[in-house]
Amino acid sequence: MRYFEYFEPKSVGEACQFLNEHEEAKILGGGVSLVVLLKNGLITPSHLVNIKTIPGLARIEWDDREGLTIGGLNHHRDILLSPLIQRHCPILAEAASKIATPPIRNLGTIGGNVAHAEPSADFPPALIALNASLMLTSPGRERKVPIEEFFTDYYENILGQGEILTRIDVPPLPPRSAGTYIKLDKITNSIAIVGVASVIGFDEKGICIYAGVGLGGVASTPLNVKGAKDILVGEKITETHIDKIAKEAQAMANPITNVHASAEYRKEMVYVLTRRALQGSLDKALGR
């Protein structure tokens, strides 16, 4: 590992300030991706800024109106075990359970998982399906962006100089709703060849009032299948609707070939998994 200096900020402001002043500095969160990149020499920062020393960046809170707030530094394990998440957004726990293995889930953070902008990461599809927003903090400024606008390319995001992903906000879902995250992996919990998350909500008559579908592993960024909302909301969901969304998801996918799977296979699996994810959410929401 190349030498770097290490800095422990006491506040978000101090961290942002430091990052602003040191162009080559990188944020250290859980470190599970970062340290591998450091070891491989893929990044050679001048400084690491350990934001885990900042109080308040790990918190899971619920507000009936605002919904769920998750700190950027909450570990995957926190998400997996949080009763609030189990009650209000169990799909996030489901996604967390499919990330790697306990020793990684104990160190890795949701903020890091998102900010790393790995297109196959497991949280982003679920957060997209939940219509989540990210709070990005920089000196004297905060901006809230819809999650799908955060990603720009493979391992690229919109974070500016001195900007930190501090919080993830998930708006409340309708009372009758359910989500499913499915991933196709080579061995259990290895990187997603394709990951699909779906969330559906109904009114008391069984009419769809909320729909979200997020995809991972099939393009340079996680994708939001926006058509899901148009196709489903206001409808009683049938096989035809599901098929239509799955086809749309497939049409959006623009995957690559790598050692884990070919582009063609991934593209085909987007269809299969989207159907399964939607059917899974439907079954759960209707108590089947």
Binding site: L28, G31, V35, P102, N106, L107
Partner: peptide
């Protein structure tokens, strides 16, 4: 008390 990777932890 929780398992972690000591190779990934500075």
């Amino acid at each position: 008390g929780l398992p972690v990777r000591s190779c990934l932890l500075l």
